[in-house]
Every structure is written in C-alpha cells, then in structure tokens.
Design a protein around this nucleic acid. Structure first.
Lengths: 212, 212
DNA sequence: GCGTTTCCATACACAATTGAATGTAAAATA
DNA sequence: TATTTTACATTCAATTGTGTATGGAAACGC
C-alpha cells in the first residue's frame, strides 16, 4: 500500500473514528469488530491497528473529540455578560448546555454511545468516565449555589447541598430521558421550562424580607 | 448425570440466575460467557441450555425476578392510608420506592446491570426495556399530578406537564446518580429531602387564596 | 416395577475476533 | 538521489464462544 501524506493520514484517522461512532451507535461497542469499523471507513484492520492500539484506545480517542466541561459554560457566561448573579449564571449556563446538546449531533451521539451502547471492555470503564463528567458538573454547581446562598438568593430552608442535589438530579434525569431516544423530544424545548421553573422555585423573591 | 427433583431443578435455575447476576455485574453482560456463569454456579453449560434458550433468554428471566411498577406503589399507599391527596400519595409512593431500592439488593443489582452493564445483544434491547419502565412511571405520575392540579394542589403557573417532567427528571437523575455507584450514598437518605423539598415547592400553600 | 421423561454433563463442529507478523510502495528526509 | 519511515493491506496462528447432539442415571407417572 502506498504511503499517504500526513494530512491524508490524519483524515483517515478521523474517518475511522467517524466509522467507529456509526458502528458503535448502531450495533453497540461490544458487538462491532474492528474489521467492521475498518470496512465501514473503506479501509482494513491494518489502518485501525496503525492509528490505535486497540478498540479501547479507539473509544478513548472518540470521547476526547467531544469533551466539554460544565464549568467552561459558566465561565463563558460570566465572561460574556458580567454583573449577573451566580444563580442567574447557573441558569444561563444550563440553557447554554442544553442548546449545545441540541445542536451538536456528534456530541449527542458520542454521549449516547458512552451511556447506552457500551459496557466494560479491555481497560476502559465507561461508568467511571460518566462519574467524572457528573462530578465535575456537580462540583461546579455546588460552588455557585454556595455563593448564591451567601448572596441570599435562595429561598429559606433550601440548603445549597439540597439545591445542588435537586438541580443536578433534574439535569441528569432530563439528559438520560432524552439521550435514550433523542428523536422523542428536543432537550432544549423540554429543558428550558424545566430549568426556569426549578430555578424560579429556588430563588428568593426580592421584595420579601425573610431572614437567613 | 442423574435427574434432579423438581424442587432441586428449580433451585439450580435460581442458582444459575444468581450466578448470572454476579458475573454480569462484575464483568458486564457481553464479556461473560455462559461457561463462566455455569461454572460460577457449580454447573456446566448443559444446565444453562436446559433451563434457558440462550443468554438473551437468561437476561430476560433475570429481569422478571425483580419487576415492580410504580403504579403498584401508589396503589399500595392509597389502599393502606386512604383519604390522602393525590399529591401526597405521590410523595409517599416516591419515598416508598426509594426505601425499596435501598433495601432490596437484588433489585438494585439487576437495575445496575440493565443500565450500566449491558448493551445490545441477540434479541434483547435494554434501552427499550428502560424506556418501558420509565414510561410506566411517568404516565402514573402524570395522571396523579393532573388530579392534583384539578384539586388546586399545585402552585399557580405550574402545569401538570412541567410538574411531571420535573418530578420524573429528578427521580431519574437521582436514581442514575445512585445506581452508578450505590456505595457512594444511600438513595433513601439523599432522596427523601429531595422529594420532600421538590413536592413542597410545587404544593400550593392552603392559606392563600390564589385563583387557578 | 417398568417405561418414560427429566436434568444435566460431555463432546464436537463451527464461526467470529484478535494480535501480530509480514509485505510494500510512496512520502520524508538528508 | 539514496535511504529511511510511514501508512496502510494481507495473511496467519491462536483463542474464544456458541449451538447442538449425545449419553446416562435418577425421578416421575402409571
């Protein structure tokens, strides 16, 4: 086989990852062989074993193409329109996140694979990967809700801990419900009223003069 | 091999399912062979193929041992202590469900397998199974929240649809967070304040005289 | 008590993957 | 331009899992 340009080689690498996404999504990770992936990309297993160590390595590379921490969303919001309360920043970051998922089919597909199309294999632990993502999001939420509490933005009797549990659970539940079959509804359209309703129920009304 | 008593045969069937749960949980469904399951139960594949058609059939049987619809919980609540509002019935049913999960290790394990330890295989579609469970729960919640709305139990501006989305998402999110690693926290201890807080935020306070 | 059925072990044939070894022609490099 | 890498394709050996067929002894029906 003729050697390819560096650019061409990079292109086949991407093509292999695209093919992997396709096959993983359609048949599940365990039930797709490297042969199937290679064929679907118009190559052979030789190409796969050149670019990746094995299926686990391929999976990892697939995930790295769409990684997007929640804190980055908050940072973007706070950088863009400053002078906004932390509770409002959270709300806007959530809405922004929903929009991203709604409009980035690759991110959607990869997350669907991570959650519903794979189990253990080789040295990859998808559950641990999900845990990492959730923990990062949760920690970010908690930090901002802690500030919200200090800023007297939360209704009385609502601790930042419970608020975090509530928001995180709601977002996770919505996400899981949606990712199970994204064609059923738009996560954005269902999520926006959900987030707004929840945040509004948690936000202290400014006129009342409650203490703590 | 000698023939066993009917009782003995039933016992080995249960033992095989127990072994399947163990191995599925530990290594994932795809990566455990029927040989491994049989060995772990102290038998051979002959026993497996006698009691079950194949791995998919075994999986289905495993699920049937722990099936528990949400509506049954509500029915139990309403049968036990009648004269309770539908919103309160939902709340109690949720708490009851949390307690069940907390105290039934088999149910916990099987659900963990369904959600995190399997993907497609043979004629089994785990995602569709999850969908069925969620849809049943969702429909039950919706019916009762519809009644709650008619009974003027919900705060103004909260539709039964959004209330359903909210409750279902929260429960699902909590459940997923917990099932990912049940040793991290007790779903009951975290869930009780979560459910109470959410329901209380949705419930209209009785003294005010809002309309609709 | 006798035939039949049941419950399971053993053995076999078959297919599917995997990792590695080898080949090769063009691109890089010097 | 000569040499060395690179980017794959092809082939091979080995493993693993599956479904089925067969056998045997004890339990069950009568």
């Amino acid at each position: 086989m003729a050697r390819k340009t560096k650019a061409e080689a990079a292109a086949t690498r991407e093509a292999l990852l695209d093919a992997a996404e396709d096959m993983f999504m359609e048949h599940g990770v365990a039930r797709t062989s490297l042969e199937q992936i290679a064929r679907h990309a118009g190559m052979t297993r030789g190409a796969v074993y050149w670019h990746f160590k094995n299926k686990g390595d391929m999976f990892r590379a697939m995930l790295e193409r769409v990684h997007m921490p929640f804190q980055d969303l908050v940072d973007e919001i706070e950088a863009l329109e400053h002078d906004v309360s932390s509770l409002e920043a959270i709300r806007l970051a959530c809405l922004q996140g929903l929009e991203r998922f709604d409009q980035n089919p690759r991110s959607r597909r990869v997350h669907a694979i991570l959650i519903h199309r794979c189990e253990f294999f080789s040295d990859i632990d998808p559950i641990a990967m999900q845990q990492e993502i959730v923990d990062e999001c949760r920690e970010s939420l908690y930090q901002h809700l802690l500030i919200s509490k200090e800023q007297q933005m939360l209704i009385q009797g609502l601790s930042p801990e419970v608020a975090t549990d509530l928001l995180q659970a709601t977002l996770a539940g919505l996400f899981h419900e949606w990712i199970r079959d994204p064609s059923r509804f738009s996560i954005y359209e269902r999520g926006v009223p959900l987030v707004n309703q929840l945040i509004s129920m948690m936000r202290r009304s400014p006129d009342t003069s409650e203490t703590n």
